[in-house]
Design a protein around this nucleic acid. Structure first.
Lengths: 213, 213
DNA sequence: ACCTGAACACCGTTCAAGT
DNA sequence: ACCTGAACACCGTTCAAGT
């Protein structure tokens, strides 16, 4: 499954041979192929040799772009966190200032991401929890996970949420969603669509977060 | 690291050779060695050949006890669910009838298990979510996850919990805990001990579960 | 029954060599 | 710079053979 990458051949770098010496953008191609393998057969199915074969390149070529297999997996995770951050940014932007609405939008974006890229999300968490996770990965993760606390800060300003550290309060909702996703298989838990459960859980938790009148 | 297993040599099965032909209880030994490897280096580090080497047995011997590597991992997961179920059973038994207390005990047992056997819990979930997971594994999982719904049923009878399907309501708390564990590394989230967070989250969620007066 | 050794088709990683 | 082929030390799985 060969693919074209827009702008992968820089000006003046065209080669005349039928099988070009340079792949053009091997790094990008490897990441795409690796994600495809991840989706199809899980992390276990990602093999540098197999990826190289698919891309018509020697099995040692990936070494030019990634220090090893783990480095490729980390790069995949970083891209995942960036994509995750974009999805949450959009959700936060599209929602109004109303706390419950904003939290619901944010949460649905989270769950939607998890259902769209389950294997990738698993890889992301695994990578993040590795003791020698690279700094860039941790930064990307922290950026993405900063959206919920921001919503809680706004909610407190509007008197919709009890006082307390926003990061700590938002943990409740994020943890619940993360767990719901972990417990679910293919968008359902015990036959109930996750989307339905999301609404229920948010309502329950928000009731617990409201200031006591 | 050789170990003795009580009762591993059945009566009359003793062999006189220095290096016995029969291992005695290879299945059990493999499972123990596999769990040790899991704890030390993760699922990736479990190798049938390496385990065989450790146990002084040929690398094809595991085949007599497990259909393949996946079967060994599944067996490990089933044992994990059984151990998990025992821990939750004990917690439910030791707690009184008070809903919040019982739920807290149950939840702490869950979190405690997760912190004690993080790699095993990961393996358990992974195994459970595999499309071709064996029936025995799913049964063990369902048994362990039945304790929380039971607590909710009791809570409803005492007027402590809103009406609704217990399994569905308990999902909130189980999901939150599962997620908290997933987000945490080594018992802490952002430097805050998970044990502290458990109490906070349970309180918040229980407020949301109380019937509106 | 239970275990073995050789064989097969894979891995990731290293390294001297090529353009 | 970027890529290659051979080599090394591993895998899981299969299979005919041994006791």
């Amino acid at each position: 499954m060969l693919q074209f990458f827009p702008g992968s051949c820089k000006l003046g770098e065209m080669t005349t041979s039928h099988r070009p010496y340079h792949h053009g953008n091997l790094r990008e191609a490897l990441l795409r192929a690796a994600e495809a393998a991840l989706v199809n057969g899980g992390v276990q199915s990602i093999s540098l040799r197999e990826l190289s074969r698919e891309l018509g390149v020697s099995h040692t070529s990936p070494r030019r772009h990634f220090a090893g297999k783990q480095a490729l997996l980390d790069a995949l995770a970083i891209r995942g966190f960036e994509r995750f951050d974009q999805a949450l940014s959009r959700a936060a932007k599209d929602s109004g200032r109303d706390f419950q609405n904003r939290l619901t939008k944010l949460t649905r974006a989270y769950v939607s991401f998890a259902l769209k890229y389950p294997a990738l999300l698993g890889l992301m968490f695994e990578a993040k929890h590795r003791p020698d996770a690279p700094r860039e990965l941790l930064e990307a993760s922290e950026k993405a996970f900063g959206h919920a606390p921001a919503a809680f800060t706004a909610g407190q300003a509007d008197g919709e949420v009890v006082a307390g550290d926003p990061g700590r309060l938002s943990l409740v909702i994020f943890a619940a969603m993360q767990g719901l996703i972990a417990l679910s298989t293919k968008g359902k838990v015990k036959g109930i669509p996750v989307d339905t459960l999301v609404g229920e859980i948010i309502e329950r938790i928000i009731l617990g977060l409201r200031p006591r009148s």
